[in-house]
């Protein structure tokens, strides 16, 4: 079931098109990664979905009764409020029942790992703590749709891992749309990929679909020595890239086919110590999409 439908969403700032006829749907309880280089329009698109920006044209259709949670890239808090006071205020303003506010705010802060800092003023928080509090204020009212703008890009690897784990645990009950330029994260938690480039949606699909579309599988052959690898590649009719004792052969429509490669490998005999099939990584695809259109 589709939770959110976006059709021809466009945002124009005078001459600049920040978002250009963006259309996509989000299915319930899925995670969608919005990917693109800096300035691609990710934040503008998320701001429009969160209701912070009015679209120039286009439509956003979703069930408003379910609520939305939004985490900006750099969440900013009133430094004189404590984490609990801020989260309670967020809950109240989002319509959480008065008698449940304290319990829900406390539980949410514990969930994001801020239990020891409940009564600390947010002005004293580190970057990682702010990101956790930002997540807490976004989920305290248990929204059906969660919009996250670069939720982990400002964090160190350990902090990133923790927040990603939290998001994965939320995915069971929530629909998540998040922007990122950290492609490992996108590979880790995504049911759908949306590639934005200069405001336009240039690629869309599941991770497998996109990888399939951009697949240029390579065969990596490991030899005993670099000399063996060099000898093999010199006598091979196909283009290969040698790197030390290994060579990469691209398997394309023009050839070679798998059968031809296997025949050549059999001829090489015991000089070959290993063969592995490699597919395009998300980073390869990103570079193609970002650089090629």
């Amino acid at each position: 079931m589709s939770l959110l439908d976006v059709k021809n969403l466009t945002k124009r700032y005078r001459r600049d098109l920040a978002v250009d006829h963006l259309s996509f749907s989000l299915q319930q309880h899925t995670a969608t990664a919005l990917i693109g280089p800096n300035g691609a329009g990710k934040t503008t698109a998320l701001s429009m979905l969160a209701g912070l920006l009015k679209p120039t044209t286009g439509s956003i259709t979703w069930d408003h009764t379910t609520g939305v949670g939004f985490l900006p890239q750099h969440p900013r808090f009133f430094p004189w409020l404590t984490a609990l006071e801020f989260t309670e205020m967020a809950a109240k303003l989002s319509g959480v029942e008065a008698k449940k506010v304290r319990q829900q705010a406390t539980r949410t802060l514990e969930f994001v790992g801020l239990a020891p800092a409940l009564n600390k003023k947010t002005g004293t928080f580190s970057g990682g703590m702010k990101q956790r509090l930002g997540l807490a204020q976004a989920i305290v009212h248990q929204p059906e749709l969660l919009l996250l703008d670069e939720p982990v890009s400002a964090l160190d690897p350990a902090g990133r891992r923790e927040i990603m784990n939290l998001l994965k645990s939320l995915q069971q009950d929530t629909t998540i749309l998040y922007s990122t330029h950290i492609l490992n994260d996108a590979e880790e938690m995504t049911d759908q990929l949306l590639f934005l480039q200069q405001g336009k949606l240039v690629e869309k699909g599941s991770l497998e679909e996109v990888k399939e579309r951009y697949a240029e599988p390579r065969i990596r052959i490991h030899f005993q020595t670099a000399e063996d690898a060099g000898g093999f590649s010199r006598h091979m009719p196909w283009e290969a890239v040698q790197n030390g004792n290994r060579i990469d052969v691209a398997v394309t429509a023009k050839g070679p086919g798998m059968q031809e490669i296997l025949t050549a490998l059999t001829a090489a005999g015991d000089k070959v110590v290993g063969v592995e099939r490699q597919t395009a990584s998300l980073e390869d695809i990103f570079m193609k999409v970002a650089g090629g259109r």
């Binding site: 209701g51 939004f70 750099h74 900013r76 009133f78 967020a90 303003l93 989002s94 204020q137």
Partner: peptide
Amino acid sequence: KSGTATLLYVRPL
């Protein structure tokens, strides 16, 4: 300007 209002404006305020 500081961005503190963003987390208020994103709610049904």
